[in-house]
C-alpha cells in the first residue's frame, strides 16, 4: 500500500536500483497528490549534492598553517 513511508522508501531505493514500472507508477500517483513527498524528492537530491561537496570542504576550525 502506498503511503508516505513507502514512497520515501522507494525514492531512496531508486538511488541504488531502478524501480519497476509498477513502482514508478505508484510513486508518481502518490507524489502527484502529496506535496510533502514531492519536496522530499528534491531534498533527497540535495543531500547527494551536499555529500559530494562536503568531501572537499576544509575543516571550518582549521587555522591556516603558519
Amino acid at each position: 500500500m502506498m503511503n508516505c513511508r513507502r514512497a520515501t522508501r522507494l525514492m531512496s531505493e531508486s538511488k541504488e536500483r531502478p524501480l519497476s514500472a509498477t513502482e514508478r507508477m505508484a510513486l508518481r500517483v502518490h507524489t502527484m497528490m502529496c506535496s510533502a513527498c514531492r519536496r522530499f524528492d528534491g531534498q533527497l537530491d540535495f543531500l547527494s549534492q551536499a555529500a559530494q561537496r562536503y568531501k572537499s570542504k576544509p575543516n571550518p576550525d582549521d587555522e591556516p598553517k603558519a
Binding site: 508516505c4 513511508r5 510533502a36 519536496r39 522530499f40 528534491g42 531534498q43
Partner: peptide, 17 residues
C-alpha cells in the same frame, strides 16, 4: 518521522527549502 499509518507526522513533514 511517520505516524503508524505511514503518513508524515505533523512536525516532521518536509517543508519548502
Amino acid at each position: 518521522p511517520f505516524k503508524a499509518i505511514g503518513l508524515w507526522s505533523a512536525g516532521k513533514r518536509p517543508g519548502v527549502w
